[in-house]
Simulated scan of single mutants.
Amino acid sequence: MAKSAPNSEAYTLLSFAVMSFPLSYLSPQFSQKDERIRMIREKAMFISSLAFLVYSFVLTSALGFNLIHLSAIEAINILIALMISTIFISMVFFARKY
């Protein structure tokens, strides 16, 4: 494994580790259920949907031009890991901003 990429499931596990830190930061704020938290969730989901479009375009382009060689399950695992990380990190960003 020293000269190869990690197993594709490792990316999802890493994203769950990333997810735990924003959730620990946001858990006192999410218990309030007010307008601010609703706005933070909405904006984070909007940014995450735009990010998903960008991630998908970049990954599809890289696969189409043969810049990277991935199987379908590896590509899906990478997209899942990126989306989980993007959603929760953007929630922290918007919680700090608003």
Rank of each mutant, 00 (worst) to 15 (best):
A2P: 00
A2S: 06
K3L: 01
K3Q: 07
N7Y: 07
S8T: 06
S8F: 02
S8M: 00
E9T: 03
E9Q: 10
A10F: 05
Y11F: 10
T12Y: 09
T12I: 14
L13K: 10
L13E: 15
L13F: 15
L14W: 11
F16A: 04
F16V: 09
A17P: 14
V18F: 15
V18Y: 12
M19P: 15
F21G: 05
L23Q: 05
L23K: 09
L23T: 05
S24V: 08
S24F: 11
S24L: 12
Y25G: 04
Y25T: 06
L26D: 00
L26W: 08
L26K: 12
S27E: 11
P28N: 00
Q29E: 11
Q29D: 10
S31M: 10
S31G: 03
Q32H: 03
Q32P: 00
K33M: 14
D34T: 04
R36V: 09
R36C: 04
R38T: 10
M39K: 15
I40W: 06
R41D: 08
E42V: 09
K43D: 01
K43W: 08
M45V: 04
F46Y: 01
A51S: 14
A51C: 15
L53A: 10
V54L: 15
V54I: 15
Y55G: 05
S56P: 01
S56G: 11
F57M: 00
V58P: 02
V58K: 08
T60E: 01
S61P: 03
S61H: 05
L63W: 01
L63E: 01
F65V: 07
F65I: 06
N66T: 07
H69T: 07
H69G: 04
H69E: 02
H69P: 13
A72I: 12
A72L: 13
E74W: 01
A75F: 08
A75K: 08
A75H: 06
N77W: 03
N77H: 06
I78C: 05
L79Q: 15
I80E: 03
A81W: 02
A81N: 02
L82G: 01
M83I: 15
M83A: 08
I84L: 14
T86Q: 07
T86V: 01
I87N: 09
I87M: 13
I89L: 15
S90L: 08
S90R: 01
S90M: 10
V92K: 00
F93A: 12
F93N: 14
F94I: 07
A95E: 10
A95T: 07
R96L: 04
R96D: 04
K97W: 09
Y98G: 10
